[in-house]
Design a protein around this nucleic acid. Structure first.
Lengths: 141, 141
DNA sequence: CTTTGTTTATTATAATACGAACAATTAAAT
DNA sequence: ATTTAATTGTTCGTATTATAATAAACAAAG
């Protein structure tokens, strides 16, 4: 019985490892990103580019962000001049979000950078492991 | 050309998927945890149990937490009565952290719960995929 | 039309998480 | 011994994330 009786290894728990992987990715992201964009802001920007003009709540749902989270993200993107916010004439509850010209320009630049960030994050893995990780993460997300 | 010319699929980027996986795990964690413990607080508690009495900065390094983060975590654990904080007589800079009796008791309970949380998080995967995910995450962490 | 229920957005609170700056202390170098 | 460098802990600022509560507007049903 050379192993610990405790039988709980923190370093092999998926939650702990996900936190570490996230930390490493965030660090790589930060060393590449433009305009001080965060991963969350980046994801929101890409989604707006995909969706076109859409409401704030819908954007949050499709970018996997809470209503409170997406509000803060949209506020910061607007402050940076990357998005345009306007009231929906057809529904007074809604706020419509879209990309500003500066936002559009940044998105095209960020797509290349995004690929570099992904590649560097996956660098320690073989090609098969990289595909495997993406596939498995999609299954548990 | 049915595919998008944009050629950047957010839903296949490792950073975005890691964020989603983390969200799912945090949600499962919260539905199981005792004393309102968060995943971060849980990890710190386990590390203290493994290390025994140690300084705050050392604990932070071994639990993958920033000095500012570990301070907040230790403060909240102390407020809950789970840890004991005392000055190091040999080094006036250091603060020594250890488990209180309540902390020790909680750790043994939390190890079972922790295993349940891991199992539920990995549930959508086959046994081979589960081992694979852990192995791959360890490689990129 | 009015009641009921849902959706949308905002606000507040709490807990990470990191960088940067700071003072106090210890260690190392000369 | 004195200067220099490194470590430790604290604090501040900014960002993300969730929950809960609130208010306004819309939709559906009677």
């Amino acid at each position: 019985m050379t192993e610990s009786i405790e039988s709980y290894a923190l370093d092999e728990q998926v939650g702990y490892l996900l936190r570490l992987a996230n930390q490493r990715h965030a660090s790589i992201f930060q060393s590449h990103t433009l305009e001080g964009l965060t991963p969350t802001q980046f994801a929101a920007l890409i989604r707006i580019a995909e969706l076109g003009k859409c409401s704030q709540n819908r954007l949050g749902r499709l970018a996997a962000m809470d209503v409170a989270t997406i509000k803060g993200v949209v506020d910061r993107l607007r402050q940076k001049g990357l998005t345009v916010v306007e009231p929906d004439p057809d529904d007074k509850r809604r706020t419509l979000i879209s990309l500003s010209p500066e936002g559009e320009a940044l998105v095209s630049q960020m797509k290349d950078v995004g690929q570099k960030i992904t590649n560097e994050t996956l660098k320690p893995l073989t090609a098969a492991e990289q595909r495997n990780l993406i596939r498995i993460l999609r299954k548990i997300s």
